[in-house]
């Protein structure tokens, strides 16, 4: 009886280990898969030409990705500029100032914001943000715009990354020892002074990590951006210009990619670029968060 139970335990352990190990190497398998598929084009074209050339015409065999990389950077940059102050202030309010009842009440709503599908963000962007940019914001600066612009995409993206940044920042704030806050308050500092000089200073690395994660989330977001960014292969000159971010390029061209030589390889290479950038930012922020967690325990 005992032998049977021990055997069961061992077999279950081995099987579970195999699944766990498979899960552990999945990142590497993905990297390898993308690399293999991107290899043909990387062999023919030098990397700097692929990444920094502006000429993109698959029919002629030109695969310069700079317009798409710039499109992504514009969109992500705008998103982060809008999202950082708003989500930081929200996190401070919810974690340091609001009554605990309000904090608990707002949590499911922020989770819900994170759970809205990107295509819903996209359709909302088309209904609300695009006309807003076209009818209000662009005329305000004396520019004409179709509304389908990097600004519209940036605004939609910023809302999508609010919950990511707020969630992690609030956790970072909770990790600041209560004793530090009490020491500051007992010296006569006001609540805001305590936040400014103690909480924010103490959690600065964590705040950076949270925003880097938000940035990398925005970097790979596809559908919402695809629907509002305008998708014109040209480096945007202003926030009211359309852009063509990298994820949108992949999503838009999957249909025809098998019919033109090297096209699929070029698209897989753009997926690889996304993968590498996102993993890079994740490594940085996870490292910071890991260090903080070590400091806590």
């Amino acid at each position: 009886m005992t032998a049977k139970r021990t055997l069961k335990d061992l077999i279950a352990g081995k099987a579970m280990f195999l699944i766990t190990a498979g899960c552990g190497v999945l990142v590497l398998v993905m990297a390898l898969g993308l690399l293999i598929r991107a290899w043909p084009i990387m062999q023919i074209k030098p990397l700097h030409e692929l990444l920094f050339s502006v000429s993109w015409s698959p029919m002629k065999g030109d695969f310069g990705m700079l317009p798409f990389i710039m499109g992504t950077l514009w969109v992500t940059g705008i998103a982060i500029v809008i999202a950082v102050p708003i989500s930081l202030l929200t996190s401070i309010y919810l974690s340091e100032f609001a009554l605990s009842r309000i904090r608990e009440l707002s949590r499911p709503f922020i989770d819900l914001l994170a759970g809205i599908p990107s295509v819903i963000y996209g359709i909302w962007g088309v209904i609300v943000i695009v006309p807003l940019v076209k009818g209000r914001l662009a005329p305000l600066f004396g520019v004409s715009s179709t509304g389908y612009s990097v600004l519209a995409a940036g605004i939609v993206l910023s809302i999508m990354i609010f919950p990511v940044i707020i969630h992690i920042t609030m956790e970072v704030f909770q990790a600041v020892p209560a004793g530090l806050r009490e020491a500051s308050l007992s010296l006569g500092a006001t609540q805001w002074q305590t936040v400014k000089h103690v909480v924010l200073r103490r959690s600065l690395p964590g705040i950076i990590a949270a925003n880097v994660l938000g940035f990398s989330r925005a970097f790979g977001e596809t559908m919402a951006v695809l629907m509002v960014a305008g998708n014109i292969t040209k480096i945007p000159g202003s926030v009211f210009d359309p852009g063509y971010p990298l994820p949108a390029l992949i999503a838009n061209n999957y249909g025809e990619m098998m019919s033109i030589p090297l096209y699929d390889s070029a698209l897989m290479m753009s997926a690889l670029v996304l993968f590498v950038v996102v993993i890079f930012f994740n490594v940085i922020s996870r490292y910071i968060l890991h260090r903080i967690r070590l400091r806590i325990s």
């Binding site: 990142v27 993905m30 993308l34 994660l213 970097f219 992949i250 993968f275 993993i279 994740n282």
Partner: peptide, 19 residues
């Protein structure tokens, strides 16, 4: 590694699934 997987955009999963 789960954290990294969590951070990878879904379009990259799409491309990987395609592969």
């Amino acid at each position: 590694s789960l954290d990294f997987l969590w951070g990878i955009p879904s379009i990259v999963y799409g491309a990987f699934g395609f592969i």
